[in-house]
């Protein structure tokens, strides 16, 4: 697959996950729904770092650092959701 097609594929995935996020948000509230929305955000972050930022070609440490950022935040936000109170 050419690099341009890969980038367009990433954009399509990002657009689909963004739309899914809004649809999930409009369908109610709850811990599982919150976890699904955060998982979609993680998927989008992965597409940006590995696809747009080309970290798929980078040393492992940098990939871990940039993937660790959304993972840490999603985990933190999930743990702090009011449903877990």
């Amino acid at each position: 697959m050419s690099a341009s097609k890969l980038l367009i594929g990433c954009w399509l995935g990002l657009a689909a996950l963004s739309t899914l996020t809004v649809l999930l948000g409009g369908s109610g509230s709850g811990l599982l729904l919150g976890a699904a929305i955060l998982a979609a955000a993680l998927g989008k972050a992965w597409l940006i770092t590995e696809g747009f930022m080309e970290l798929r070609h980078a040393p492992r440490l940098w990939r871990l650092l940039l993937l660790g950022w959304p993972l840490l935040l999603a985990g933190g936000v999930l743990a702090l959701l009011p449903q877990l109170a």
Binding site: G25, L66, P70
Partner: peptide, 15 residues
């Protein structure tokens, strides 16, 4: 972009 995709669900969507 990366910051926005995390910020967007938290501010606009998560209930």
């Amino acid at each position: 972009d990366l910051v926005w995709v995390v910020l967007f669900p938290l501010v606009y969507v998560l209930n």
